[in-house]
């Protein structure tokens, strides 16, 4: 049995105002895969991600994490398995210090004393933010906040990492830092992004959402070569594939 598999079957979500955000979405993500969910604004990416650890309840359809179907009863276990990093780190960081924030999850898991400290120190070291432990989160830069937000989730030792726009609003250096960090993780990774160069760099597989439905699901390199598909979904080719100077074409996803 593996907890690292995410299986979504005929998922549908309708918001209370009647907006159909997700239409009959099905996919299966296996152990260790790195998958990007991309699409234009309002395509339903964030809505879809929020279903993966039960932050939103599906109108219909089913989600399984490993062998466990997502339900109210299994929610605590699923939330430990699926670590969610939100788009805006300010939503995720709410405790007085970085240490307290990273400790929030392990304390909720019932860990105490030295075990919590060990988890927090390990998670902060992993994202290169050990020196920020005593700082209040509101004193951090955007890149630091993002790394700490990732550490808050890593401290819960999840099997699957779900990240909503991990590089949005970051400068190029902070963006590179986050990308290197994500490459190092051996978790199953699922993220949404408008940063298609990052997607090309990190993800072997890409799912395109358009108006709540899946338009394409396949190897990233192939999907980004399909100009008609990208145009229909209001997307543009990554700069690396447009022959822009300074953007390497030699990425993981395009390698044979």
């Amino acid at each position: 049995m593996s907890h690292h598999i995410v299986e979504v079957t005929h998922l549908q979500h309708i918001y209370p105002d009647g907006t159909i955000a997700i239409k009959d979405v099905s996919f299966c993500i296996t152990h260790g895969e790195s998958v990007a969910i991309i699409g234009a604004n309002g395509a339903g990416k964030s809505t879809l991600l929020q279903h993966l650890n039960g932050c939103l309840e599906a109108t219909s359809g089913q989600i399984r994490i490993g062998d466990t179907p997502l339900s109210k009863r299994t929610l605590p276990d699923i939330r430990r398995t699926v670590g969610m990093v939100f788009q805006n780190p300010d939503d995720q960081l709410f405790m007085p210090t970085v240490f307290d924030d990273v400790a929030f999850g392990p304390l909720n898991l019932g860990l105490e004393g030295m075990h919590v400290e060990k988890r927090v120190t390990e998670a902060l070291t992993q994202v290169g933010a050990g020196h920020l432990a005593t700082k209040p989160p509101y004193h951090l830069s955007g890149g630091e906040k993002k790394r700490v937000a990732i550490a808050t989730v890593l401290a819960m030792t999840p099997d699957i990492l779900v990240l909503d726009e991990p590089t949005s609003g970051l400068d190029s250096f902070a963006r590179r830092q986050i990308m290197s960090l994500l490459k190092e993780f051996h978790h199953t990774k699922i993220f949404t992004s408008h940063d298609l160069d990052m997607v090309l760099d990190i993800c072997q597989r890409t799912i395109i959402l358009h108006e709540g439905a899946i338009m394409a699901d396949g190897p990233t390199g192939e999907i980004f070569q399909n100009d008609d598909l990208l145009a229909t979904c209001h997307l543009e080719k990554p700069f690396a594939l447009q022959g822009c100077p300074g953007h390497s074409r030699d990425t993981d996803a395009t390698k044979p």
Binding site: G54, P76, G83, N88, F94, V116
Partner: peptide, 24 residues
């Protein structure tokens, strides 16, 4: 809305209606 998002982030990290003080 912001409070709702923060609450969601708390739920995602195992919050079940109890705050834990670090100092035991």
């Amino acid at each position: 809305h912001q409070a709702a998002r923060i609450h969601t982030a708390m739920l995602a990290r195992g919050f079940v209606g109890q705050f834990h003080a670090r100092r035991q």
